[in-house]
Simulated assay, not measured.
Amino acid sequence: MKSHFLTLALVSGLMALTTASAFAQSAAPASPTATPRVDQREANQQQRIANGAASGQLTAKETQRLEKEQAHIDKTEARAKSDGVVTAKERRHLQKEQDVAGADIRRAKHNKRVAKSS
């Protein structure tokens, strides 16, 4: 129960940060480092993870692994932005990472494992 509550709190906090970040970036003018599609997709994936954790479709371990995968994508995006320009190749790489993460979320939510109820 404690780990499930901790997971829900973690997911909720990350969603709030992601949503605020996406909103702040959408209000800014377009720049070579702008990645609105990546940001929107990231917010959608965070929401899917939060919904899965809240409904019990994801175990605490699955939620933690998916969150770690999202953090890796965040780091990749930050690295891509670090030189001031996100190239087409870097955008494709981010898209591919998000494709894999999306498939992992779906697979984890629809497997036979469920969160332990207390």
Rank of each mutant, 00 (worst) to 15 (best):
Q46D: 05
Q46V: 13
Q47D: 14
Q47M: 11
Q47V: 15
Q47A: 11
R48D: 08
R48W: 04
R48N: 13
I49E: 00
I49S: 03
A50N: 04
A50E: 01
A50V: 04
N51G: 07
N51F: 13
N51R: 12
N51H: 14
N51C: 09
G52F: 00
G52M: 01
G52R: 00
A53M: 06
A53S: 04
A54R: 03
A54T: 08
A54F: 04
A54P: 11
S55D: 07
S55M: 08
G56A: 02
Q57K: 10
Q57H: 11
L58H: 00
L58R: 00
T59S: 02
T59W: 01
T59I: 05
A60F: 04
A60N: 08
K61Q: 12
E62I: 11
E62D: 12
E62V: 09
E62F: 07
T63D: 04
T63C: 02
Q64A: 15
Q64K: 13
Q64F: 15
Q64I: 14
Q64L: 14
Q64S: 14
R65S: 15
R65Y: 10
L66P: 04
L66H: 04
L66D: 01
E67A: 12
E67V: 12
E67G: 12
K68F: 15
K68A: 11
K68R: 13
E69N: 14
E69Y: 13
Q70E: 07
Q70F: 06
Q70M: 09
A71M: 12
H72C: 15
H72F: 13
H72P: 15
D74S: 12
K75S: 13
T76I: 11
E77A: 08
E77K: 07
E77L: 09
A78I: 05
A78T: 04
R79H: 08
R79G: 10
R79C: 10
R79A: 12
R79F: 08
R79V: 15
R79L: 11
A80R: 06
A80P: 01
A80C: 01
K81R: 09
K81H: 05
K81D: 01
K81V: 09
K81G: 09
S82C: 02
S82H: 04
D83R: 06
D83K: 07
D83C: 07
G84E: 05
V85L: 06
V85F: 04
V85R: 09
V86G: 06
V86P: 02
V86S: 04
V86H: 01
T87F: 01
A88Q: 08
K89T: 12
E90F: 00
R91E: 09
R91T: 07
R91N: 07
R92G: 08
H93V: 06
L94R: 00
L94D: 07
L94A: 05
L94E: 06
L94G: 06
Q95A: 09
Q95D: 14
Q95R: 05
K96Q: 06
K96S: 09
K96T: 13
E97R: 14
E97I: 13
Q98I: 04
Q98P: 03
D99F: 06
D99V: 08
V100R: 10
V100Y: 07
A101I: 08
G102C: 05
A103K: 09
A103H: 08
A103E: 11
D104G: 13
D104C: 11
D104S: 12
R106K: 15
R106A: 12
R107Q: 13
A108H: 10
A108G: 02
A108M: 13
K109N: 10
H110N: 12
H110L: 10
N111T: 04
N111K: 02
K112C: 12
